[in-house]
Amino acid sequence: MTVPTVMDKDRLAAFVDGELSPEEAAEIVIHLADHPGDQVYVDDLMAANEALAQAFSAPLQEPVPDPIREASMKSPQADTIVPFRRRPLAVVSAGLALAASVALAAVLLPELQRGSPERIVALGPVPLGSQLNDMLGTLSSGVPVTLDGGEDVMILATLPVENGFCRELEVVDAAKDRLDFGIACHDSDGWTVEVMLSEPLSNADLEDGFVTASGAEVQSLQPFLERLGAGPALDAKAEAEAMAQGWVR
């Protein structure tokens, strides 16, 4: 039978997890002496922590596997790169207006919608013969390309969707402290940039969430990708086959 107790279990957990000051911890110790129900809970938490630590301890006693050691000691190979989805600050979907109440996105919007000539990625159809069109059509995922202007471009992944394929790409412009991210999808008319994201490069990995065209904040691109019916990213072989077939499913 569980013995009734008086102390909040989150505070007991904080004690077990070493979150309390020495003075606070000392108070808990004194409290536990007179409250067996709390003492049982603390003992259980400690036992659970110990069980978890042991249950997953095997890697600490094993040598570093060769593939991981090799991957850590040499330059990354394109085929081994797994897309690392950032959490961009602002997103604009093609054909939709951004909520005016979102101040920062509103600042970014005019430039994005204009499709500034300085940008590699711009919303809307990708002109045939353009640099972007060539990269979307022929560049394998994970292969970095540095453009004449100094921008680093990489296709992050190819995702199969209901009517064809979409490709995620990012453009890092260190000189302008800018990170652009786009999702371009292919249909019978060619490539179209469906989503455009942008944030200061210095904020990359620091900002959380982005803003949809409806102004609602969400935590990832997953809802958008799900609306497209996107499946798992293609592996290198499947991507090469799709490329060879002109991105037609």
Partner: peptide, 18 residues
């Protein structure tokens, strides 16, 4: 807190103090 609430009973431990 929620993780431990679910975990402890599976380890045969108490679900937490009343």
């Amino acid at each position: 807190s929620r993780a431990r609430e679910a975990l402890l009973p599976q380890l045969g431990m108490t679900k937490g103090p009343m």
